[in-house]
Write a protein that binds this DNA or RNA. Sequence first.
DNA 1: GTACCCACTTGAACACGTTCAAGTTCAGTC
DNA 2: GACTGAACTTGAACGTGTTCAAGTGGGTAC
Lengths: 226, 226
Amino acid sequence: MVETVTEPAPSEKGEQTKRLIVDTAVRLFREQGYDKTTMRGIAQAAGLSVGNAYYYFPSKDHLVQEFYATVQEDHAAACAAALTAPAPFADRLGIAWRSLMQTMRPYHGFAGKFIRTALDPGSPVSPFSADSAPARERSMQIMRTVVDGSTTKIDPELRRDLPELLWLCMMGITLYWVHDSSPEQAKTDLLVDRAVPLVDRLVGMSRLPVLRSVTRDALALYRALR
Amino acid sequence: MVETVTEPAPSEKGEQTKRLIVDTAVRLFREQGYDKTTMRGIAQAAGLSVGNAYYYFPSKDHLVQEFYATVQEDHAAACAAALTAPAPFADRLGIAWRSLMQTMRPYHGFAGKFIRTALDPGSPVSPFSADSAPARERSMQIMRTVVDGSTTKIDPELRRDLPELLWLCMMGITLYWVHDSSPEQAKTDLLVDRAVPLVDRLVGMSRLPVLRSVTRDALALYRALR
DNA sequence: GTACCCACTTGAACACGTTCAAGTTCAGTC
DNA sequence: GACTGAACTTGAACGTGTTCAAGTGGGTAC
């Protein structure tokens, strides 16, 4: 669990109540989506008052972040085993991205409302905000694992930033997935299936003399903007 | 103005009231941002009831879309003159993107709340939704103008989809801009300044034998996902 | 002139997220 | 065992976007 709020002195009872609120909220989010899950509903289902939830969580969005964290943990768990043994880059990337799709699939309907708050720069739930740094770092760690265990030869300078770049791609794919209204999100599956070998080829080609210069420039720009 | 709602029979009086509501809403959005502009505030400033605004616009978001349309018109007007004479691709792309930055600059603070609703797939305000097709088409038209007036040699097959791709890039830049907290959004200016020659080089290189195949594949994937 | 119709307008009412002043519980201190 | 203070809990209240049953007004048919 991520500590989204700085507590004065975590005690047993408070921790229990907090957990109860998170669990209830996440359950209701799963069962009935974002809009239909009200703070009053969460409070009632958890058997406490609405103000109590606000004692532990500054906003409904923060509860959504907890939900996001659980999805992320599921994703990490889903591909951990398959990523232990070294393999070609394309294989490992495919494993990671495909398992993300499978992990997120049940929540496609709900994800729209989630991305709404996730992309708000003011919100602490934004994946780029300092507040969600731990969560971001954890999902970026998956991409790092993908790169680190790759048997493919990769330009060292690109390799350094590749995990971050792949993480960005993953955010982009997620954005596409959210807007994907094809049945079972088949189009996103297609995107992943064909983007993986494409990225693989681009990574491989980045070492070619023709592309070397433009790759460096793009990397330098990326670093300047980070 | 975009017709976001299908009226039964547009009469003079109704049209006037509708215009009054839009103008008041856009003015208040400009003056005090999204959150501080309430539906009650708009109604009061326009001298009518809150329910009346809902007779013409299904939601507050639809009023934001009107605001978006005005910004877009400003952008089109801002770069129209500079795009009449043919010029190298990089020059024209720079003109279009840089003028977008200047047009949007005053609304950076407000843009966060806007992107929030803009990226909600359920919302009719999403730039990808059918509801905002006219607005999307108009901003895409700017990118088409950029490509059409380019004196640079471009692979015909890429040229066909280049406007759409540049429009997507523009959306991406806008997304970065919204999250850009550097003073005066200097980082986004840097992004534009350096992304333009980079895109120019990539477009030029796409005709090289080494890149030809990967370019085709990427284009095919893009078309399959559209 | 009267009756009707329908575009247009109203404002109270609803459910929501959020706040807050006021209460309760309880471990530690004397 | 009483006292204290902080952690915890409450529910009414606020302002918001949105809805809706009830009106108003002016043009048209008879």
